[in-house]
Structures are given as structure tokens and as C-alpha cells.
């Protein structure tokens, strides 16, 4: 009887095709990625049929959360040398007699998401690294007529970057009272053109039904 040869080694799986595939997927993801920004408030944007993409630069985004807080965000401009964000903050500091240090300005420049901190607390917010303290400081930008910091932010942004476009990112459940206030403040500052940020949805129109 012939001897049955037993395999001495455990079977070896050739992982090369898998690695190849992984490399391709990884390269694709790395090249196409635009990081999702971690916003301070979760916002479910309403859907629309609009197909216009959000502008990348020269935007001023107002984030209206479902619990009626206002957050604001700007971009640094299409050239990193422009440094719009620290300029806006300096301008804003001048109005409220606040002097921001170079590190604070740098921190503000790099800050990735929207900010909803009253300007007087901004120094504390930028100095700390503790996420819990930061979270506690984000009480939304005041928009009362006595302390209308949002109007000042809009004014400073427009004076630093005249070509800025206003974007509104609201939650579906944001009350209209707040939206109306924002629109009024914007109109006071001569901003009449808005981009409402929405997510895409398909719409069907039945033409035969209409023609009946």
C-alpha cells in the first residue's frame, strides 16, 4: 500500500490578490476623500431637487440646530495665504475690545467645524483643549437685538472678504421664528442672496396626470 503523504505545513493562502484589491480601494479612498466635518450639533438637512453643489470657498455658513442655537463657520479662502479666519476674529476682537494672541488666532484658523461661542467666551474656548469644557461653552451665538453678535460676525466677515456667500444649513425641525430672525439680520446687513444647504432627493412629476 502506498503511503499517504500528510501535509507537514498548514495550507498557505495566497493573499496577493486581496492585497492588490485593498491597495486599489485604499488609494481610491485616500485620493477622493473629503473629511466629514464633525459639527457641534447634528443637523438633518431637508431634501430638495437642487443639483447645485455647495461652493468650496468664500462661504459663510450658518448652522441652525434643532434646539434653536446658531453656529457660524467660515473658510480660509481659496489660498491658504489669505487667512480669512484669523483676520475675521481680529476684526471681531476689535469691536469687543479683545486682543487675541497668535496661538489663539492659529487655533481659530485651524478649527475644523462651526463655532457657537459668544465672543466674550471665545478666549477661554480657544485656550482650552478639554472637549467637555468646549462643549459647555458652545451656547450658540447671541442674536438678541440687545446683543446681536451674529450681525457683527456677518459685518466683519463681509468687510474682510467682500465676495463671501451666505449659506444656511438648518435642521428640518428648526422653528421658523429663528429662521425669520436670521433672515432679518441678514437683510439688515444687505445680504439678500442665500444658499440653502439641502440633500439631494429624486422628484417625480407625472405629466400625464397634469395634462388630464
Amino acid at each position: 500500500m502506498p503511503k499517504i503523504k500528510l501535509p507537514t505545513k498548514s495550507p498557505h493562502i495566497d493573499m496577493t490578490p486581496m492585497v492588490d484589491l485593498f491597495s486599489v480601494v485604499l488609494t481610491f479612498l485616500m485620493l477622493t476623500t473629503t473629511m466629514t466635518k464633525n459639527e457641534p450639533a447634528t443637523v438633518v438637512t431637508p431634501s430638495s431637487i437642487s443639483e447645485k453643489p455647495t461652493p468650496d470657498f468664500n462661504t459663510m455658513t450658518l448652522l441652525l440646530s434643532s434646539d434653536d442655537k446658531v453656529y457660524i463657520n467660515f473658510d480660509n479662502g481659496n489660498d491658504t495665504l489669505l487667512k480669512f479666519r484669523p483676520k475675521i476674529l481680529t476684526e471681531m476682537g476689535k469691536r469687543y475690545n479683545l486682543e487675541f494672541t497668535a496661538t489663539e488666532l492659529r487655533e481659530f484658523e485651524k478649527f475644523p467645524s462651526s463655532i457657537g461661542v459668544p465672543i466674550l467666551k471665545m478666549k477661554d474656548f480657544l485656550d482650552t483643549r478639554d472637549q467637555k469644557i468646549r462643549k459647555a461653552l458652545e451656547t450658540g451665538i447671541p442674536i438678541d437685538s440687545t446683543d446681536n453678535q451674529l450681525a457683527d460676525w456677518i459685518f466683519c466677515t463681509r468687510s474682510v472678504n467682500p465676495g463671501v456667500e451666505a449659506c444656511i444649513k438648518g435642521d428640518q425641525k428648526t422653528t421658523f421664528e429663528l429662521v425669520q430672525k436670521i433672515l432679518d439680520i441678514m437683510a439688515d446687513k444687505n445680504v439678500f442672496k442665500f444658499n440653502l444647504i439641502t440633500s439631494l432627493e429624486g422628484a417625480k412629476i407625472n405629466l400625464a396626470e397634469i395634462q388630464k
Binding site: 437642487s50 453643489p53 455647495t54 440653502l196 444647504i197
Partner: peptide
């Protein structure tokens, strides 16, 4: 972390 679908915008002009 990737955001595939970029958010869309809708224009509105107010009087």
C-alpha cells in the same frame, strides 16, 4: 470618514 455625497445648495433671493 469620507463624505461621498456633497451637500447641495438651493439659491433664494429675498426682496
Amino acid at each position: 470618514t469620507t463624505a461621498f455625497a456633497k451637500a447641495k445648495v438651493m439659491n433664494i433671493n429675498l426682496p
